[in-house]
C-alpha cells in the first residue's frame, strides 16, 4: 500500500519545515509529508489527485492560501483540509466554517496533539498514488 500523502502549505517557511519534519518523524513511513513551497504547487498536487490530506495556515495576508482552499473545496470536495494557524480568531473560524472546514487547530500547539485527528481523518480512505492522473488544470490566480 502506498503511503498517505500529506501536503503542508504555510507561508512561514520555518513553520512549514518544522510541520513537515516533525509530522514525518511522528507518523513514520506509512505517511509521506511534503511542504509545498507555494499554494500553486499544492494545488497542482491536489489537481493530480495525489493528496490525501491538506494542512494549511490561512494567515492574515495569505489570500492565495484562501484561494487554494476555495478551489479545493469546489473541485476536490472529498479532499480533507486541516487548518493549523498562527492567526486564530473568531473571525477566521467563521470564515473557515463558511468554507466547510471542520478540522481547525491553533498554533503554538504540540504536533503530537494533531496525530489522533490525522489518523481518524485518513482511516476512512485509501492512500492515493503520488503520481496520480492529472484530471484538472486550473490556476489559483483565476
Amino acid at each position: 500500500m502506498p503511503p498517505w500523502q500529506i501536503h503542508v502549505v504555510d507561508e512561514d517557511p520555518v513553520a512549514a519545515l518544522i510541520t513537515q519534519r516533525a509530522l514525518q518523524a511522528m507518523l513514520g513511513e506509512a505517511y509521506h509529508v511534503l511542504a509545498d513551497p507555494t499554494p500553486d504547487t499544492a494545488w497542482l498536487a491536489c489537481a493530480n489527485n495525489s493528496v490525501d490530506l491538506l494542512i494549511v495556515d490561512p494567515g492574515p495576508r495569505a489570500s492565495s492560501t484562501l484561494a487554494l482552499m476555495r478551489v479545493v473545496r469546489s473541485f476536490r470536495p472529498g479532499l480533507p483540509i486541516l487548518v493549523l494557524t498562527a492567526y486564530d480568531s473568531p473571525g477566521l473560524r467563521a470564515r473557515m466554517r463558511e468554507l466547510g472546514i471542520e478540522r481547525y487547530f491553533a498554533k503554538p500547539l504540540d504536533l503530537r496533539d494533531l496525530l489522533p485527528t490525522i489518523a481518524a481523518t485518513l482511516s476512512a480512505s485509501t492512500p492515493k498514488s503520488p503520481g496520480g492522473a492529472s484530471l484538472l488544470t486550473m490556476s489559483l490566480s483565476a
Binding site: D12, V14, A15, I18, A86, K107, P108, L109, D110, R112
Partner: peptide
C-alpha cells in the same frame, strides 16, 4: 499572532 509561528517551530523542533 506574530510570536505563534516561531514559538510553534521552536517547540516542535525540540521534539525532533
Amino acid at each position: 499572532h506574530e510570536i505563534n509561528n516561531p514559538l510553534y517551530a521552536a517547540r516542535n523542533s525540540l521534539y525532533l
